[in-house]
Design a protein around this nucleic acid. Structure first.
Lengths: 193, 193
DNA sequence: AGCAGCTTATACCGATCAGTATAACAAAAA
DNA sequence: TTTTTGTTATACTGATCGGTATAAGCTGCT
C-alpha cells in the first residue's frame, strides 16, 4: 500500500448518516452528501461505491450506534420495569430535543423501505424485531421477578409498545407536541403498571 | 362559455390521488400523473395549476372520501364500543387487502409532511385531530351509557388509539404481517375492555 | 527518481425533473 | 362564419439527478 486515505471515512460516514437520516434516501442528493461530508465526488464514489451502498452503511451505523447501544444500556440496568419506563422517557426527550424533526432513522426507513431492496428491508426488519425483543424480555424477566403481573402477555404487549414507540417518533416529527407525546408515553408505560 | 371540459376532472383527480397515495409527493412525477390519468400535460396544468396544488386536492379528496366517511359511518352506528372495535377490525382488513402496500394516505403524509408547506400540514393535523376526536367521543359516550369503565381517561386513551392505528398502517406497509397487526389491533381494542 | 494510489477540481454523460410554449384541432357560442 | 376556449401532441426550457471520466497534484513506498 502506498498511501492512506487522507479524509476520515468514519467522519464522512457519520455526516452521510445525518444527511440520510434527516432527508431520507430519495430526497438526499449526492450533492447534499458532498457538501455535508466535504469529501470530493470521486473520493466518495471510490470509498463507498454508490448512493445506495452509502445509505446501507449509514443505516447500519445508525442501527449499531443508536438502536443497539440504547437497548443494550437499558438492558444492562437489569431492572426491567425501569428499563421500559426509561425507554419511553428517553424517547420523548430525544424527540423533543430533535429540533430538526429528523425522527428515528430506522422508523423513517420503515415507511420509505417499501421502495428499497431486500437488504434495507432486512436491516429495518431486524431492528424492529430487536426492539420488540427488548420489550418482551423486559416483561418476561419482570414477571419472573414478580415486578410485573403474570397475566400480561409478553409478546402482545411488546408489540403494542413497539407500535407506540414508532408512533411517538413519527408524530413527534411535527404533528404532535411534547404534551401529547408524553401522554402516549405514559400510556405505553401503563401497559405494565 | 364556449366549451365544456372533455375529460372528467373528478376521474383525473381520482387517478392522481391513487398515484400520490402510493408514491408520495416527491416520488410521484408529472409523467406518472399524465400516464395514469390519461390527461394531456397542458390540460393537467390548465385544470390544476401545479403538482403541489394537485397533491393538495388529492389529499383533500382522500380526507373527504376515506377518513371522513369512515369515521362518520362508524359514529352513525351509535354503539361506541363496537365502533372502536370495528374501526380496528376494518383497519387491519384494509391493510391486509392493500396488496400494493400503499398504507394510509393521511398517515403517509405525516412523515412526508415536514417538507411540505403549512397547507398540507394543516390538512394532516386536522385529520389526526378528528380521528383522535372520534375515539374520544366514542369513549365518552360509552362511559355515559355505562358500556365503558369510568376510570378511563378519554383523551389519553384516544391518543393511544390513534398512535396504534398509525402504527398498524405504517407497519402494515411491509414490516409486519397480518398476525402481528391483529395483535396490535387487539391491544388497541383492549384499552376499553 | 519513479511508480502507485488516493486526492482534488472540473467537466461531462444520459436521464429525468417541474413547468412552459406552440400549433393544429374540435366544439360550442356569437 | 368567426370567435372563444379547451383539447391534443410535441417540443422545449433550465435545473437537477446519479454516476463516470479526466487531468493534475500530493504522498509514501521501492
Amino acid at each position: 500500500m502506498s498511501w492512506e486515505k487522507s479524509f476520515d471515512v468514519d467522519t464522512a460516514l457519520e455526516k452521510s448518516m445525518q444527511v440520510f437520516w434527516s432527508k431520507g434516501f430519495e430526497s438526499a442528493s449526492i450533492t447534499n452528501l458532498i457538501e455535508e461530508t466535504g469529501v470530493n465526488r470521486g473520493s466518495l464514489y471510490n470509498a463507498f461505491g454508490s448512493k445506495r451502498a452509502l445509505f446501507v452503511k449509514s443505516l447500519l451505523k445508525y442501527d449499531q450506534e443508536y438502536r443497539k447501544t440504547t437497548l443494550a444500556k437499558l438492558e444492562a440496568l437489569d431492572q426491567p420495569s425501569q428499563a421500559i419506563s426509561r425507554f419511553f422517557d428517553d424517547l420523548v426527550i430525544s424527540t423533543v430535543e430533535d429540533t430538526e424533526h429528523k425522527g428515528c432513522f430506522l422508523f423513517n426507513t420503515v415507511l420509505e423501505a417499501q421502495q428499497h431492496d431486500a437488504e434495507v428491508n432486512a436491516i429495518v426488519a431486524n431492528g424492529l424485531r430487536e426492539i420488540e425483543g427488548f420489550f418482551r424480555r423486559c416483561i418476561e424477566v419482570g414477571q419472573v421477578r414478580g415486578e410485573i403481573r403474570q397475566d400480561i402477555q409478553p409478546e402482545s404487549k411488546a408489540k403494542a409498545m413497539l407500535a407506540l414507540a414508532l408512533a411517538i417518533r413519527v408524530l413527534g416529527r411535527g404533528a404532535y407536541h411534547e404534551s401529547a407525546l408524553n401522554v402516549i408515553a405514559a400510556e405505553a408505560k401503563s401497559i405494565i403498571a
